[in-house]
Design a protein around this nucleic acid. Sequence first.
DNA 1: GGCCGGCGTCCGACGATGTCGCACAGCCCG
DNA 2: CGGGCTGTGCGACATCGTCGGACGCCGGCC
Lengths: 248, 248
Amino acid sequence: MAYGRAVPGSVQSIERAAAILQVVAGSGGTLGVTDIAEAVGLAKTTAHSLLRTLLLVGFVEQDPATGRYSLGTALLRLGSSLDTNELRARASNWADALAARSGHAVRLATLSGDEVVVVHHVFRPDDSAQLLEVGTALPPSSALGKVLLAHSHPHTGSRSGPRPPAVAAELGEVRARGWAADRAEANPGFGGIAAPVRGAGGLVVAALGVSGTRSALFDAAGVPRPLVLSMVIDAAHAVSRELGAPGA
Amino acid sequence: MAYGRAVPGSVQSIERAAAILQVVAGSGGTLGVTDIAEAVGLAKTTAHSLLRTLLLVGFVEQDPATGRYSLGTALLRLGSSLDTNELRARASNWADALAARSGHAVRLATLSGDEVVVVHHVFRPDDSAQLLEVGTALPPSSALGKVLLAHSHPHTGSRSGPRPPAVAAELGEVRARGWAADRAEANPGFGGIAAPVRGAGGLVVAALGVSGTRSALFDAAGVPRPLVLSMVIDAAHAVSRELGAPGA
DNA sequence: GGCCGGCGTCCGACGATGTCGCACAGCCCG
DNA sequence: CGGGCTGTGCGACATCGTCGGACGCCGGCC
């Protein structure tokens, strides 16, 4: 079927250009004009005209030796512009919902070098005075810190080489069970529970967690309250799905 | 300046759509139709018409509550599907050099779900008949497989849950020392040495390694020959630098 | 509560553009 | 050397994309 205007009122050449990009992406490598034209059902000269413009704007590249086309770096830059703001945009609804449902403050953090940095903060839904923590660095012993370090290079957070065995063991457990806890041992007053957020490639790109008093988050034995834990894991999975994480 | 046809013979609406995407990406969040129209110098209804099609093909998304636009997941998926091509392009020179210097075949692999898939293969630089392995899956016990599994979710490669303790321990060692070896125990004949390749976010996105006979890669005690090992690690680090990995 | 400004969206006229047939040069292979 | 296939350029013309005008909605202000 020729790639005509699939939807009335839509801009045909943008639909066609998008179809071409999907085909080139799906090829996993490079494709020639003739293959692309056949794949999207267009005349070869039509496909060539569209490719010429996609080449101009950097959405495709062309191997001068073979004449074949592949996806271009401008598209890569757009696709990977999922920077902190994008992460925040996708996470904010789920963070809001998590705060509302759990009654706790919610924070989203990423690694910046060796630092665990808060990139989004939803206040505890009550009238208490709170401090916005966006931009601040958290200690590695925080729940968010443990999640991010658990899914990072083993030397991250330890300038002198591998982590101490006890730390490495705990981070291994964090990886195994898919969440981390901070029972407010090192920082009396507030603890936290956090879970990993994965990106399109399946790798951990952030951590999402709640913070609250020890008694609100853990029972007397220090075990996370199951309802709060499942809310955190569910919210982190939901954000991962929005980021296109496989199997999330 | 109105966004007319910047280049004669180019498809104007594709140029305009690309400009809109750049503007939305550069905003770091969301933008309204009016802002986008002003930024690209078009009439509001023109910008709206283009955005409607970009919305249709998934290149932008619209917040139904506010009407504001952000980059869409179809575009983000295109960007991430480029990763393998980008990876191969950046790795191929170093892979060629590693093959030449080491005298061994070189392979680059990534994880695809639970599978270890070869995405680039440089033949051993001699006259022997060899088989191109791009696209094939390697066993988890291969050096490349160990590297990738070492830096993946602890359940990856094990459908029934966490990995057996011996496997988990070995993968922990792989993480700690930054390379993996396959001493041809499970697959007599050829062994391998591999190291992780990190992306811009610092996370492991691929593994680069050599394969050869056990005696060519290891001494009698099964210790990797230091020259070959350092060549592999250096080449993986060089590829990581090209991918913008921090500290590589 | 009413008014106003700005927003996103719809409609349709029409001028400009995108489409594509035709042709050509170059390359590869038998 | 010739045939087949490729990517690319040119130009006619039918179709499409552009955009002015209008409208409904919403939030802010008085």
